[in-house]
Amino acid sequence: MASLRLTDDDVEWSAVRAQGAGGQNVNKVSNAAVLRFDIGASRLPEAVKARLRAQADQRISSEGVVVIKAQDHRSLPLNRREALQRLQALVDQAATVPRRRVATRPTAGSRERRLKSKAERAGVKATRGRVTAD
């Protein structure tokens, strides 16, 4: 699906200071990349937009904006590339149409195994309890 390839033009970028260890460099250089991608305003097909919005992902806001922060690398271009790759993975996941599940009946063997394990478990539980003097 070449039409679903995202570029820098599809997203809004900002650079912020990275968190965590990194010495003096982390305090004076804004190397973390924050990517914002508006699902509604994108050129993605409507079906992909709907599946993307339906994903249970904390990076997708209720307004339909994907926010990804990349800060693993020491350079801004590498962090931008990683953020774009994460967004592309999210879009690729939404682009795949889920296969329709066909309901099937349990096999006779699986039913037999289930009943056997239930009987074994009932036997274990039946041996528990107070001990009576007979």
Rank of each mutant, 00 (worst) to 15 (best):
V48S: 03
L90D: 01
E120W: 08
V97E: 15
L115G: 04
D134I: 04
L35V: 01
A21W: 00
R100G: 07
A54L: 01
A47K: 13
A70K: 02
T7Q: 12
L44I: 03
A50Q: 14
R86F: 00
A54E: 12
D72P: 08
G22V: 01
R114C: 01
N79R: 09
A103W: 10
E120C: 00
G40E: 15
F37Y: 14
A95Q: 09
S42Y: 07
A41Q: 14
D9V: 13
E82K: 10
V66M: 01
V131C: 11
K125D: 13
G129L: 11
G129F: 10
Q58Y: 09
M1Y: 05
A47R: 13
V102R: 15
S75W: 06
P98H: 12
L35H: 02
A32N: 02
T104V: 14
R43C: 05
Q88H: 09
K116W: 11
G123Q: 14
D8W: 09
V91T: 06
L6I: 12
R114I: 06
Q88I: 06
L44N: 00
L87M: 09
S110T: 11
E46L: 04
A94H: 08
A47H: 10
S110N: 10
Q55I: 00
P45Y: 00
I68A: 10
R86T: 00
G22D: 04
A95I: 05
T104F: 09
N25W: 10
A18L: 05
R36A: 13
Q71W: 04
R128G: 04
L6C: 09
R53N: 10
R105T: 14
L76H: 03
D57L: 07
A126E: 13
I68H: 13
N27H: 12
R51G: 07
R86C: 00
V16M: 10
P98F: 15
K118D: 09
R105E: 15
V29H: 11
S3C: 05
R36G: 04
F37H: 11
E112Y: 07
L76F: 10
R51P: 04
D92T: 07
L6T: 07
T107G: 15
S61H: 04
V48R: 03
Q93H: 15
F37E: 11
T127A: 15
R128K: 15
V29Q: 11
D92L: 10
A122F: 02
E12Q: 14
G23F: 05
A70V: 03
V102Y: 10
D72K: 15
G22W: 06
D8H: 13
A21H: 08
V26R: 11
V26N: 02
S14I: 01
V29W: 07
Q71V: 02
V48A: 03
V65G: 02
L78A: 15
S3E: 12
A18P: 06
P77S: 11
R74K: 13
P106Y: 06
R111T: 06
V67G: 00
R53K: 13
G22P: 05
R5I: 08
I60S: 11
G40Q: 09
D10C: 06
